[in-house]
């Protein structure tokens, strides 16, 4: 029996506990999410103990992903929304498809951004054959 492994997401930034709950709700039972400090969360991803990092700040313009950028590297992170840049499915899909594993956006975009990001991660994982505990 092959069991699908939950996708492990860490969330950091403004109102992180609510973000984590939103991520789990959007994941339909395929996602577990935890609210952590930004450096702690990024280090878990770096060590392979979490799969993805979501970060918010008010401006979306740097603080959301500053620690993740330092710890994971600029080519693994992507800002997908700011108050002047709407979060779109195309932008999220491109970032996920490029292999980026940390996503930042403005706090006010949380309710739109998180379901989109989770949906694209799940679709990407499915296209890659999924994750299994076997």
């Amino acid at each position: 029996m092959v069991k699908e492994r939950l996708i492990r997401i860490v969330v950091a930034g403004v109102d992180a506990p609510s973000m984590a709950q939103l991520a789990m709700n959007a994941g339909g039972g395929r996602v577990e999410a935890a609210a952590l400090g930004d450096m702690q969360g990024a280090r878990l991803v770096k060590r392979g103990q979490a799969d993805y990092y979501l970060g918010t700040c008010w401006s979306g313009g740097g603080g959301a992903l500053a620690a993740a950028t330092a710890i994971l590297g600029a080519n693994r992170v992507g800002i997908v929304g700011t108050p002047g840049m709407v979060v779109t499915q195309d932008r999220v899909r491109l970032a996920v498809g490029e292999g980026r594993i940390a996503f930042g956006f403005a706090y006010e975009q949380t309710t739109a951004a998180i379901p989109l990001i989770i949906s694209e991660i799940l679709a990407y994982r499915d296209s890659q054959g999924g994750d299994t505990d076997d």
Binding site: G13, V14, G37, D38, M39, C57, W58, S59, G61, G62, G63, A66, A67
Partner: peptide, 18 residues
């Protein structure tokens, strides 16, 4: 401290760098 002000500190440093 790091527990309560990490987001603010990071935001401030990034903003001042911009």
């Amino acid at each position: 401290d790091e527990n309560n002000a990490a987001q603010f500190v990071t935001h401030l440093a990034i903003a001042l760098t911009r």
